[in-house]
């Protein structure tokens, strides 16, 4: 396996806050890499830098050997790197189906044509994809009338509709009802594995991380504090204390 994405020496400070303080990370082809860490650690900042939304003050990010820094978000998307958002970014005047269809039109380059958005081929593809996310009953609801979990899933579906090779997801399961969470995660993982997508996802639920991540990167104050397979990381007492908030003594007892 080779690295699909390589970050080296990324630095970005907002005033005195070091959101990235020397990030080195290789993301391997077809792996699922989970990013965990406390709020404000710089997880979203890493996604923002990779997708062209923020420009780091130093460092480099290469994707398939090509430098990403300095490129516009839309150029990075066209190279095969898509993202979903911590706060869903849906077109609120459109229905869920139209949102996904717009993403398909964008992928096909058909956004510039005068043929109907809801042409059968795109419509069917969008409906099928949304169905896989359990959104079949929400197809014709306007995006501003959805609950948080549904918005979140629609947001991810839009990113998946772009058929990226690398997908960055910012807290994909936050807001999704606990009862549905595992089913959604399993489906998402299956969809991505089927399509050979490499995934980087920020996640607070350690059960989700344990279930689908191949590797886990622990973020702390703009640095990667630990990196390894879930079994190792999730049984590390320091990680448990800093990320999950279990005191060291208890943690040592809790994890065999």
């Amino acid at each position: 396996m080779s690295a699909l994405l390589s970050a080296r020496g990324l630095r970005l400070a907002f005033g005195g806050v070091r959101a990235a303080d020397g990030i080195d990370l290789d993301v391997m082809e077809r792996e699922f890499l989970a990013i965990i860490g406390p709020n404000g650690a710089g997880k979203t900042t890493f996604i923002n830098m990779t997708t062209g939304h923020l420009r780091p003050q130093a460092g480099s990010i290469t994707y398939r050997g090509v430098e990403l820094l300095g490129r516009k978000p839309r150029d990075i998307v066209r190279m095969g790197v898509a993202r979903s958002f911590q706060l869903p970014q849906l077109f609120t005047e459109h229905t869920v189906l139209e949102n996904a269809t717009l993403a398909i039109a964008a992928r096909e380059g058909g956004w510039a044509s005068l043929r109907p958005l809801l042409r059968p081929a795109w419509r069917e593809e969008a409906a099928e994809l949304l169905g896989r996310f359990g959104l079949a009953s929400a197809l014709h609801r306007r995006a501003d009338a959805l609950n948080e979990g549904t918005r979140k899933l629609a947001d991810i579906a839009m990113a998946v509709a772009l058929r990226p090779r690398l997908l960055l997801m910012d807290e994909p399961t936050s807001g999704v009802a606990a009862a549905d969470k595992m089913a959604v995660v399993e489906t998402l993982a299956r969809v991505l594995r089927d399509e050979g997508v490499t995934a980087v996802f920020v996640e607070h639920d350690m059960d989700v991380v344990a279930r689908i991540a191949d590797r886990v990167a622990v973020w702390g104050q703009g640095k990667i504090a630990a990196l390894g397979p879930p079994r190792q990381i999730l049984s590390d007492p320091i990680v448990l204390r800093d990320v999950i908030g279990i005191p060291v003594g208890e943690a040592a007892d809790a994890v065999p």
Binding site: K72, R74, D75, V77, F91, A106
Partner: peptide, 10 residues
């Protein structure tokens, strides 16, 4: 409604 998203779709 969401201009930035358009850019993130290419």
């Amino acid at each position: 409604t969401r201009e930035a998203r358009l850019e993130f779709m290419g």
